[in-house]
Design a binder for these strands. Structure first.
Lengths: 232, 232
DNA sequence: CGAACGTTTGAGATGACTCAAGCGTTGTGG
DNA sequence: CCACAACGCTTGAGTCATCTCAAACGTTCG
């Protein structure tokens, strides 16, 4: 179940190499900081279970999430050539995380340009998601933003084998959604009600049910091609 | 002057290799589409002169810019392992662009993991900028967004040798700023006035003058570390 | 039982948007 | 050389989406 990120097809050998580089599996409680913004990091991680997020805080402590991670994703490869982070990383739910030291990664990747390119591509999907998130908060209204996010999570959860396409586990609070969508918690609450009353989707924590996927995608101006579900 | 992206130190040999792979230099008029969203691309480009942007349009044609490029940047390397684009690319001003075919890039990078890692890192700076842009449109008010963007461009233009730190050429219209900051053109106009009246910066098209860099950065909650001015 | 947390609802304030018009500059064609 | 179209900038008035502040409710957990 490791390393299932869409668009990246690893060979059995490559997968074995990467999984063999895991030195440790660490467990985190919900809402814990894993890496502070600005820290130097010397490890990459594979998310085994739970939901992680990356975030940027303003001077007053208001937080903007810039991405979330679902199980199976290689989380910090982008930190491999990067070394110090421009954002924080934390858990939203309890999470279990496999650790891969950068040094081991270097040993594996240097003689394998093809594998390095696959991992590079995997970081580029992350960048494509950033762009979609920018579109979401820059151009959509409140209802559209939440609708767009639910659509994205639906597709990603299905890709991780965690959704049948109709309903899935989404253990986020309304404040989390607010920090994702650039809204206030109170307003997210009202938006959720509108989505329910419009028959688009229903939040029944910790689950979401999509009632009308086509209408939801239309409301959120959602086009899944940035997720590269069918490969590059 | 090519390939000056901050945080990426290329050796003379590496620089020569990449510049030797240029097959053509193309000129574009202002406000022209270079690549449509969804197109397959088989080239990367180095921006020699002018300003490029990437954008995502909604169904009604409203546009969100997701990045801008200044001269010296390797623009489309991320498209190298990607092949089809989740966004459009176009000119804001007249621009001249050097073309590097992906095939040539592959020949150069496959035997040079160190260089590949540098270019990889360069795409990661792009991702870090996306995150900063997300913070900008998700958490800042209108004045803060424009202030933040001016700060970013100040630093990047200085990095490209195109600013003395006080004033620089920024040939963008107020509509461009609106599409960058997730605002309307009319409101950008009022924001610009507020910035002027507050003594933070003055727009005198096509130039911006920063009057009080510290106050501007504070107003825009701007922290330049994501630009990796001093390397990874 | 009470504290902590997430959710829900209401009332009022406000930042940003919409629509509309006017102004200045540039470029073009009669 | 003037007239006018095109474009970007500026300003005003009114509207609306979202925020702020405040309070209450239901669970869960100790």
């Amino acid at each position: 179940m490791l390393l299932n990120r869409r668009g990246v097809e690893l060979t059995v050998e490559e997968r074995g190499l990467l999984e063999g580089a895991i030195t440790e599996v660490r467990e985190f409680e919900p809402r814990k900081t894993i890496v502070e913004a600005g820290e130097r990091v010397s490890i990459s991680t594979i998310l085994i279970d739970g939901i992680l997020c990356r975030y940027i805080d303003d001077r007053k402590g208001l937080r903007q999430l810039v991405s979330v991670h679902v199980p199976g994703e290689f989380v910090d490869i982008h930190a491999y050539p990067m070394r110090h982070l421009d954002h924080g990383v934390g858990t939203l739910t309890a999470a279990s995380v496999a650790i891969v030291p950068h040094e081991a990664l270097k040993q594996i990747l240097d003689p394998r340009p093809e594998l390095a390119r696959k991992l590079w591509f995997s970081t580029l999907i992350g960048a494509a998601m950033h762009r979609a998130w920018l579109f979401r908060v820059g151009r959509l209204d409140a209802v559209g933003r939440v609708a767009h996010f639910v659509c994205e999570m639906g597709v990603r959860m299905a890709g991780a084998g965690l959704s049948d396409g109709k309903a899935f586990h989404l253990p986020l609070t309304q404040s989390d959604l607010a920090e994702i969508c650039g809204l206030t918690t109170v307003h997210v609450n009202r938006v959720i009600r509108q989505l329910r009353e419009a028959g688009l989707c229903i939040f029944r924590p910790p689950f979401v049910e999509i009632l009308d996927a086509a209408a939801l995608a239309r409301r959120g101006d959602f086009d899944p091609s940035y997720l590269y579900v069918d490969g590059p």
